[in-house]
Computed example of a mutant assay.
Amino acid sequence: MERIVLGDAEIIRVVEWQGPFAPARAIVPEVAAATWRENEQWLAPDHWEASSDSYVAALQTWVVRHRGRTVVVDTGVGNGRRRPNAPHFDQRQGDFPERLAAAGIRPEEVDVVVNTHLHADHVGWNTVERDGAWVPAFPNAVYLMPAADYAALDPNSTHARTAPRSEAERGRREDDQLMFADSIAPVRRAGQVVLWEGGHRIDDGLTLEAAPGHTPGSSVLRLTSHGERAVFVGDLLHSPVQLLHPTCNSCFCEDPAQAAASRLRILEQAAQERELVIPAHFGGPGAVEVRRAGSGFAVARWAS
C-alpha cells in the first residue's frame, strides 16, 4: 500500500498481485527485444525480468479521496472467477479485501467506482459472491462504465461483439461472457451503473474523458487539485517501454491505430501540463511524470 498526496487529494494504491506475467514481446509486440535490453537499467526489476525476458505486471486499484468523496479506480481481477482463457485470472483466491481494509477503505464508504474500461482485470472486484450470487462489492457506490464497452459486451445489445476484433481476443469471447455475467450485469441489475460517453464530470476536480482504441470505450480519469494534476490512464500504457515508442500498442489493444492516437494525445498533454501519469499495471512506484524526448517520451520523475 502506497499513498501520494496531490493538492488536497490523497491517492492510495492497493496491489492485488504483482510479478512476471508473460514474455515481454508478447505483451508489446512491436518493441524490439534489443530495446528492453538496452534499457534494463531502469526497466528491471520493476517492469521487466531480464533473466526470463518477462513483462512484469501489477494488478492494482487506485483509490482517490477528494473533497469528501472516496473514488475507486478499476477493481482488478477478483476472486473465484472462471476465466478459462486467462490463467493468471482464473479462479484466483487473494486477500484484496483485507488489503483494502488495511488502507482504511470500507466498501460501504465508497461513493464512486470508475471502470476505465471493461476488461476482466479492471472489473473483478465490482462484485463479491454472497449466498451463491454475485452482488455489488460497494453497496452505496455509483459505478461509472463506458457506454461503448458495455454495448460491446451486453448480449442483449444490437452493438454486442459478434466476432473478435484483434488477435488478442481470439478464444476469449467465453471469458467476456463470463465477465459480463459475474462482474457487470449484477451491478446493472442493482441500479448502480451509470453509462457515459464522450465525457463525464464527477466534480470540479475529477472528470472522465474518452480515450478509445484499447477498447471502444477506453477512458482516462483526470484529477486536478490546487494546480496539481494527475491522469489515470488505465491500459493506455501497459509498460513504461511504451514511453520510448508511444505508437507501439499492447497486444490487447482492439483498434491499434486509435489506441496509438489516444496514447500520443494523452501523453502529450501530460508532458505539457506536468500531469502525474498513473497507469493500471506499472510496478515500482506505479506513477510517473513524463517529458518529451525526440519522437517519444522519457521519465521526468517517478512518484514518491
Rank of each mutant, 00 (worst) to 15 (best):
E40F: 01
A287Y: 08
D95H: 06
V14F: 00
L267H: 11
S166H: 09
E16L: 08
G213C: 03
R106M: 13
P45C: 09
F282I: 05
I202V: 15
L267Q: 09
N249Y: 04
S166Y: 01
A103P: 05
D182S: 15
S304A: 13
W62C: 11
L153C: 12
H238F: 14
V142S: 06
R13E: 00
S54T: 08
V135D: 06
Q269A: 14
R25V: 12
V193T: 07
G213P: 05
N115V: 13
A148L: 12
V71T: 07
Q272A: 14
A190V: 06
G132M: 02
E16G: 12
E129L: 07
V135H: 13
L178S: 05
R274D: 10
F89M: 14
T162W: 09
Q60R: 15
A160L: 07
S262M: 02
T207Y: 00
A160G: 10
R67H: 14
D111K: 00
R13N: 06
A259I: 08
G171Q: 04
A300K: 14
V110G: 04
A261H: 12
V112R: 10
D203I: 14
A185S: 13
R301L: 02
P23D: 05
R172A: 11
A293N: 14
D8G: 12
E228N: 10
V135A: 05
S262L: 12
A101D: 08
E38V: 00
A287L: 05
L276K: 01
G227K: 06
R161S: 10
